[in-house]
Design a protein around this nucleic acid. Sequence first.
DNA 1: ATGAAAGCGCTAACAC
DNA 2: GTGTTAGCGCTTTCAT
Lengths: 345, 345
Amino acid sequence: MGRQRPGTPTLEEVAARAGVGRGTVSRVINNAVGVRDSTRRAVQQAIAELGYVPNLAARSLAGHRADAIALVMTEPDWRLFGEPFFTEVVHAVGDALTDTPVQLLLTLVRTDTERRRFVEYARGGRVDGVLLMSVHAEDPLPDMLAKAGLPTVMLGRRSGDEGVTYVDADNAGGARGAVTHLLNGGRSTIGAISGPLDMYVAQCRLRGYREALELAGVEVRSSLVAECADFTEESGLRAATGLIARHPELDAVFAASDTMAAGALHALRAAGRRVPQDVAVIGFDDFQPARPTDPPLTTVRQPLEEIGRTMVRLLLEEMEASPEDSPVAWRHVILRTELVLRDSA
Amino acid sequence: MGRQRPGTPTLEEVAARAGVGRGTVSRVINNAVGVRDSTRRAVQQAIAELGYVPNLAARSLAGHRADAIALVMTEPDWRLFGEPFFTEVVHAVGDALTDTPVQLLLTLVRTDTERRRFVEYARGGRVDGVLLMSVHAEDPLPDMLAKAGLPTVMLGRRSGDEGVTYVDADNAGGARGAVTHLLNGGRSTIGAISGPLDMYVAQCRLRGYREALELAGVEVRSSLVAECADFTEESGLRAATGLIARHPELDAVFAASDTMAAGALHALRAAGRRVPQDVAVIGFDDFQPARPTDPPLTTVRQPLEEIGRTMVRLLLEEMEASPEDSPVAWRHVILRTELVLRDSA
DNA sequence: ATGAAAGCGCTAACAC
DNA sequence: GTGTTAGCGCTTTCAT
């Protein structure tokens, strides 16, 4: 199964050619201080002449680190990997790593076989830490990694008392604010398009919707709530179609994601409802939709770039810390959301 | 920057506990033959009791292989990573690897910094081979990898005389067949929605369109050809809108991808054209669109699962081969496409 | 069938 | 500042 290039120059050959010791070469390639400038240049020239590239396996073995982290999506439905949300997260995390020497590895974990393979890979020391996204409530992967002592940071949490470090948005608060905004705008029959309730994020956003209604003294009707199997545009379209059929008097919709909101807008237009004159729509996430939705769409902005940056920061910190001194078991960071008004609701 | 877990049991400790030598333990974890069954069980028990996981850096260093391959997308516009095409390729490649011990690593290469980082990673021996997709004509990465002696397989080619192993579909032939089908169906004013012409795949599909017209003695008019910056639905929509405006007599459209075709369908419907009564539409690729396009859509099926399987097979073969015996410099495989009729065109 | 031993190429601790 | 050296944990001969 594959052989490493033979004849690849080693650090020792570089040292010989430059007329220095191996330690010095090591210092040069690691940008360590305490090397005379002339020596450094001589080594660099030898490196260039030989086309030397450090053997990363040897470096890992001796240095006890991989200089790589994994961003894992644990999602049986691999198709969702193409959703804007994940694309944006990958982008944000990638950006947060540009100024580090850390290589980002994306990994899809769809089956138990792949889960096992990845755990062996990570426990085997090929990555220094793991970032998880799209984690469902019953997913054992976070605990497997955390118990193995691997620095692990999740995007979102699996439940109210999560035992692994995570970064999340204020989902309940954001949803509450959005629905309150609709109520203040004079809307009363507000439908909710919820994400899959086996994900805590969906539970929170739906709870925010309920709380806003309760605070305003408006009855919460279950027929106004549609749960979807995922956060996609297609699901939003189907859910909205059902809501319109059940409640022709619907005058507002709160969708648990922007993609679902886009689907809802199409459904409403197809049903002949004018947006936002007849119906106001609020989404959650604030992506740039691929095909721009025609009517203005108010959204709860989830700060994905900041979430990505924060996840990377927390992970690097955990990687930095020696395993023996563990002052904290895990940390939780909740980022504020922001209501972005694009219409008068 | 991260420290490997200390106190991780080593192969030596397993050997001691099982009362055998290190070599024997190595044979057991590698499923090598020639180990007595009772010995094997004893070792396995010790492994279980200690929670032993092999150190992959040490294994790589001693074994000269990484048991991992990278699937790289070299695309400055990271947003395209979410396109159905790439999702399907990732899926196909992942499936082709399920029965191997090889870990699949996805990597995004957007900038030169990332390109350099990845080359060091790959040349450093962290992967045994590289799969490339979405390669533009001027991309230097394939040559960098190939020159470094890394087994490399591309999806598609950069030009007519590609110097790196690749797997491709018969793009020109597929397009020619599709347009011929339209002509046979009595259509005469056939618009072409082309992909970005800095990608060979787009050139080929457009060439197929031209060839079909020429063979039928129909004039090729440049105003009937719209080039897009990418293969997305949005681009297809814009291109089709322009075509309709320039050529109200348009009675068929050939789109260089299914996503673009979906965009074209929306544009046509918005323009009040009935599909396929007034206008026939043929796409290329055959994905399941996220939001199903209402009218039936005939497509040139590009066998993505087979392409993925073939890429993996070629790569594993190149990895298997010893570097010294290189009977062939590279191999090219072109897979046949298939016209899937969903309407009477 | 199994134990012993020689590296794989690097980092880091220690001497000078 | 720079050279030397002792491992890192595994695979792989080579004996036995």
